[in-house]
Write a protein that binds this DNA or RNA. Sequence first.
DNA 1: GTCTATACAAAGATAGAC
DNA 2: GTCTATCTTTGTATAGAC
Lengths: 211, 211
Amino acid sequence: MAKDRASHQRIRKTPEERRREILDASIRLIGEYGFNGISLKDVADEVGMSQPGLLHYVGTKEGLLSMLVTDVYDMSGTPGDFLASGVPGSDPEAPHFPAYLRFLVRHNASRPALMQLYVVLQSEAVAPNHPLHDYFQARPEQVWNFYSEYPWVLPEEIGGWENMRSLVRMSIEAMDGIQLRVLREPHIDLYEEWLAFEKLLFPSPLWDEYR
Amino acid sequence: MAKDRASHQRIRKTPEERRREILDASIRLIGEYGFNGISLKDVADEVGMSQPGLLHYVGTKEGLLSMLVTDVYDMSGTPGDFLASGVPGSDPEAPHFPAYLRFLVRHNASRPALMQLYVVLQSEAVAPNHPLHDYFQARPEQVWNFYSEYPWVLPEEIGGWENMRSLVRMSIEAMDGIQLRVLREPHIDLYEEWLAFEKLLFPSPLWDEYR
DNA sequence: GTCTATACAAAGATAGAC
DNA sequence: GTCTATCTTTGTATAGAC
């Protein structure tokens, strides 16, 4: 297995593996205690290395956060993933927006640690001096622009994607509220709870062919 | 102005006044930076006293938080306040639940610092070692029990208060999501946004006489 | 790339004077 | 009731050996 290359070297963990370990540990710990609630030593212990050893990878504590956001956050659960998924409503030529939201909720439900990280950081970043403040501040508009690039098929009565702003906003608000609740009461099923909101936000018969 | 009583004493700030100052400063600072995001010195500076001076009042850092929760949180915006408010739907003999939720949203909108405190603490307390973890964990059930004591009048089709569980839960979820959004985009009107959700959660014609 | 040792600052809390 | 001084711990970060 491509082992002969540089065979005089001892096998050891590659930087990529370390990076991955650091990311996973950070997701768990920050998701649980918040960025303000953890220390670099906590993460280092979790990964099994010294605190200066960790700093070698992330530079500073903020660097750890940047790494997390850039490499993990915006990399999954996108409309692009949805169109490639082949689930009902994901026809790349005529995708259904409610179907994407269901996809997104399922995606989040399948990665609870990442979801928790998101919820916790989002609230923590309300503080104007938080390293992610600007990121989350700009996010709603960025997400809207991002979504706007896809050819969603909508009921004619809506009158075009431009009129979806408040519905998109309310959908995000509902999701955030649900996620916060599920964090405290894990017995609540995230997907079921979202379906209840979907029924209200995208009602029959208006959305029957477009959900 | 009642100055003659104990006129031989110099006028100075009473403990009550100090308490009030400490509470106000804490609401602002913790709401903005989170409990993990502030130090006792931050609060002390804000109030204009030394850090040990502050500790004289609150005992420990956690004591500050307890003081906040006990004295401020659960003391306002209750159904009791609602019934005494005289607004439409607040007849103590036959109160309307959606009317109470509107009352609650208006109340929150009128005290943005307190609302922000609530949102930030709620997420921070996801951490199992957070001093308010248990408090927020138990809260949904407590709120439900608290609400259950009032004789809300509901559409007959609902079939009784017991069937309101999911609707109450979804209402709270929506509110939490809205509040989080408004914190980042203050131009959004909290009350207007809630009315949009109310229309979905308590639709016509079912709720027309009970809203 | 990973460690030990260490510098430096900040935070919570206590002692004791006034 | 409020302060100064101080103790102790913890946290970020750097220096330098291996």
